[in-house]
Simulated assay, not measured.
Amino acid sequence: MTPRPLRPLAVASGLAALALALTGCVANAPAGSSAATAVTVDGTDDGCSLSTTSVPSGPVTFTMTNNGSDNSEFELLADDGLRIISEKENIGPGTTGSMTVSVPAGDYYTACVPGLVGEGVRASFTVTDSGTAVEATGSEKERIDAAATAYVGYVKDQTGQLVTATDEFLAAYTAGDDEKARSLYPSARAHYERIEPVAESFGDLDPKIDFREADVEPGTEWTGWHRIEKDLWQPSADENGGAAYVPLTADERAHYADLLTSDTADLYDEVTASDFTVGIDTIANGAVGLMDEVATGKITGEEEIWSHTDLYDFQGNLEGARVAFDGVRDIVDEKDPELATSIDAQLTKVETLLAGYGSLDAGYPSYTELTDADKKKLSDAVNALSEPLSRLTSALVA
């Protein structure tokens, strides 16, 4: 990450404990509506069975019975597997919980999340076209509130997945399985990269978790992902200021692993606090900030100086920016449709360009394998996106 002034999050109390509204602000139908299609869900400690995996568009009521041994939640996610359309949290063992949401035709995912942390047990879910349009409804304030609630849900989900991915990565690292740890490092970090502007809002958490060696002030202990990165991809003396790199001992590995675990848990506690929420400007500024991260750190190769896994970080930032923009897209459409179209087109261009190198699932090449021409194409695409994206916040709050 690149050090910059921290952007404060607008935090307010009284976040409603309601199921998240559909991104794009399609109104939830009243719970138990007679017009809603009923879907029952059987959740266990390691399973998530639905009575059907295909329903017609319109109101759908999901009722989950938690037959597991821990608290659980049920989620309906968009086709990217990132945006939470709706969720029902804190369903205790032996209890049931319901949520009703109006959904348009399309492909989705469902998930039961035992223990409330991690990706959960996911499956594909299809909504067919019933012939009845599902329109965005509500006043502008209602849409803004729904966008904020949906974004908070996304941040919580990504942070929960970061916790479990970090635990798996650190287990391999402290066990001395460096090959496995190196394979897990970039994909685990993607969860953090998607929500980095939020992490930066919590005082010294981001410096503890994500500072590069060059960012650390003299006399301050260097901790976090990049401290461990250097130990996994040990530099030569020439790459280390002329000094031979001294590998960390087992005790030192355990020390830095414990600190990263603790700091990640603190981040999770912050975003799952009952009074955590965000303003519409924070969502928009987050999208801008994520692409700034690409322009200032990823394009130059400065972020992952030892592992050269910058393209993974690039993808995480890009996905986070897309989710943030899509969450407010319908509001921008009404205020400045040309701007909405421009941002969407430029986001798509960057997504298409990056997809030419790989994906988070299939992997990306080392950043050192890209030519100067490759890096210029990426830089030009990001710069072309930055111009319309820089106008997003003013369009929303005008």
Rank of each mutant, 00 (worst) to 15 (best):
T309K: 10
E293Y: 15
G358K: 01
G356L: 02
D263N: 08
V288Y: 11
V288S: 13
L360C: 04
G356N: 04
T348I: 02
D313I: 03
A373V: 06
T264D: 07
L259H: 13
D326W: 11
E338C: 07
L360K: 01
Q315R: 12
Q346H: 15
T300S: 10
I283K: 06
D313H: 04
L290I: 09
G301K: 09
E319S: 09
D361F: 02
S359M: 00
I305H: 15
L353S: 03
A257G: 05
L360I: 00
T272L: 11
R329A: 09
T341E: 14
L311P: 09
G289C: 06
T348W: 10
L354H: 00
L259N: 14
D266G: 10
T341D: 15
V328I: 02
T264H: 09
R322W: 15
E304G: 05
Y312H: 05
G297S: 13
H255A: 10
D251N: 08
G279F: 12
E302P: 08
E302R: 14
R322E: 11
S274P: 13
Q346I: 08
D326P: 15
T261Q: 10
I331W: 02
V350I: 03
V350C: 02
D258A: 12
T300N: 13
D263E: 06
I283W: 12
A355E: 02
V278D: 11
T341A: 12
Y357H: 05
R253S: 03
D251K: 06
D333K: 06
A273P: 14
D333F: 08
S366G: 11
D313P: 01
P365V: 01
T261S: 10
I305Q: 15
T261Y: 12
V294H: 01
T296W: 14
V323N: 14
D313W: 05
A273H: 12
T249I: 01
L360R: 00
D269C: 11
E252N: 00
D275F: 14
D292C: 04
G286E: 11
M291S: 11
V271W: 15
V332T: 11
D281S: 14
N285G: 13
G279I: 08
D310K: 05
L339P: 04
S307W: 15
A265R: 07
V350N: 02
A265W: 07
K335A: 03
G356D: 01
E369V: 10
W306K: 14
G358F: 00
S262K: 11
T309R: 09
G327K: 05
V328D: 04
D313S: 15
E351D: 04
R253H: 02
T348C: 05
T282F: 15
S359K: 00
A362T: 00
I299F: 09
